[in-house]
Amino acid sequence: MPALDRDDVAHLARLSRLQLSDAELDHFGEQLDVILSAVARVAEVAADDVPPTTHAVPVVNVTRPDVIVACLPREDVLAGAPAAEDDRFRVPRILDEEEQ
């Protein structure tokens, strides 16, 4: 099925939030093609009647008592942030010019 062209790889990079150079797009494109061709072998087995396995050891409905517990101290968390302001994470603008 694979054979990714440059546009496909650029689209994947965009979905993955990775700003890649043209050289990187070409290099990864080739490698992803080889990997995808190799892993496509999973289509050879496992018919429709085989159920999927999502976890090795399934456990269901795991809950904890509905008790309020302390969260991490704000200053400890913000100490690891790339930028903080007014006791909050400072982030770049979230809307493009035309959306504002």
Partner: peptide, 15 residues
């Protein structure tokens, strides 16, 4: 692509 790749891989996991 989900069914052909991820979905199929999870079935292989069952096998």
């Amino acid at each position: 692509y989900y069914d052909a790749y991820y979905g199929q891989a999870q079935k292989v996991r069952t096998l």
